[in-house]
Amino acid sequence: MIENKKNFEQFDQDMFQRVEMNEQLGERIAGKSLNFWQDAWMRLKKNKAAILSLSVIVILVLLALFGPMLSGRDAYEQNISQAKLPPKVTGLEWAGFDGMANLGGRDINFYEQKNVEENFWFGTDYLGRDLWSRVWEGTRISLFIGLMAAIIDTVIGVAYGGISAYFGGRTDNIMQRIVEILTGVPNLILIILFILIFDPGVFTIILAMTITGWIGMSRLVRGQILKLKNQEFVLAARTLGASSTRLIFKHLIPNTLGAIIITLMFTIPSAIFFEAFLSFIGIGLQPPQASLGTLINDGYKELRTFPYLLVIPSVIIVLLMVSFNLLADGLRDAFDPKMRK
C-alpha cells in the first residue's frame, strides 16, 4: 500500500488530463433502435417450433401453388387404365414409395401389372387422377377457404368490435345484444341451412363460416379498444384535437394489431378444419372439386387396400393444423407485452 502511494506521488500533474462530463452523453441510448415488429421478429426467431412451423407453412403454400406443375398432370383428368396406382418415387422405394400394395394378402406391384411406365409420386385414385396434383390442388383450395374466411372474419370483426367499443354507450349496448342473439343460434345448423339454400361451393362455404365466425374477433377487438381508449396517449391525442379517424387508425388499431394477427392465425386452421369436416360429412365441396376434406372422404372408403389415399391428405392437414397453431402460439409469445421488461 505504502509503496503504491509513493508511486502515485511520482506522477506529474501534467500527465493527467481532465475528463469533462458531457451532460448530453448522459441521455444517449446505446442500443439499436427497434420498432415493435422488429422486436417481435427477434423474439419469434428464438422460438424454434414457431420458425419450423413457419417454414413448413411456406413450403406447403409453395407446393399448393406450384405442386401440380411439378408433376405436369391435371388434377381433374381421368384415366381409368391408370386407376388405383400406389405411390412410386424412384430412389424412395425403401420408404414405401415403391408402387406396391397389399391385395388379398399378397404384395402386388401395380405398375408392372398395369404396364405403366411413368411414376405417380402420390399414386392415383379410383378414377386414375394423379393424387399429387389433387392433393396440392386440394391444399390450395383449403388454404384459400381458410384464409378468406379468416380475412372476412377479421374485417367484419374489427369493424364491428371497433365501432361498438369506440362509440360506447347506447351504440355498444345495442350492438352487443345483437351479438348475443347471434351467439345463441347453433352454429352448425345455421351453416347446414345456408349450404342447403345456396349451391355448395367454395364461396358458399366461406360465407357460411363467416356468418358467425366474426363474433370472436369482434369481442377481442372490442375488449382491446375499450382498454385502450382511456389510455393517456389517446387522451393526449384528443387534447391535441385529433379526429376520430386519426385516433382509430394511428392510435387504436396499431395497438390492437398484435392481438388481431394472433387471432387471425388461430382462425385459419380452424376454418381449414371446419371445411374439411363439412366436406367429409358430405355437405361441403362436391366432387370432382378437390379439397383436403373431399380427398379424405374419398380415401377412407378404401382404407384397407389403398391406405395412401387417406394417409397423404391426412398428413398434410395435420401438418397445416399443427404448424398454424404453433406459429400462432409463437406469435402470441412474441407480441405479448408481459414478456417485455
Binding site: N35, F36, E232, F233, L235, K250, H251, P254, N255
Partner: peptide, 9 residues
C-alpha cells in the same frame, strides 16, 4: 408509461 403511444416514434 401510458401517455406515449408505444407504436409511434
Amino acid at each position: 408509461y401510458a401517455s406515449l403511444n408505444p407504436r409511434m416514434t
